[in-house]
């Protein structure tokens, strides 16, 4: 049985979608570490400032998610379909 080449391409794209979603989901739920003992290091101030890892993580997550979207869009543009 010869599989539709479009289907193969679309299935590959589906895996890409799920990969990006899985990684993003992992980072998203990692934010709950801030409220766990496991993530106590995040609550420590950085250097001499009062800015701690929790605040930095919040900002980095937002910027990181936007960066992930940009990468996803760039990969999508290069694809045939």
């Amino acid at each position: 049985m010869i599989e539709d080449p479009r289907l193969v391409q679309v299935q590959r794209k589906t895996r890409l979608r799920l990969l990006f979603s899985g990684v993003t989901l992992l980072f998203y739920f990692s934010f709950s570490l801030n409220w766990m003992n496991l993530g106590s290091f995040l609550r420590e101030p950085i250097g001499d400032s009062v800015i701690n890892g929790s605040i930095v993580m919040f900002v980095l997550l937002i910027l990181g998610f936007i960066a992930a979207e940009m990468i996803f869009m760039l990969i999508s543009r290069r694809e045939k379909y």
């Binding site: 979608r17 990006f20 993003t24 934010f31 929790s54 919040f58 997550l61 992930a68």
Partner: peptide
């Protein structure tokens, strides 16, 4: 203080998924 931002990250994070999925 910081606890308030849990709502921000929750509301924002839906958008990457909207794009990906």
């Amino acid at each position: 203080g910081f606890d308030g931002v849990i709502l921000s990250i929750g509301a924002f994070a839906a958008w990457p998924f909207m794009l990906f999925l």
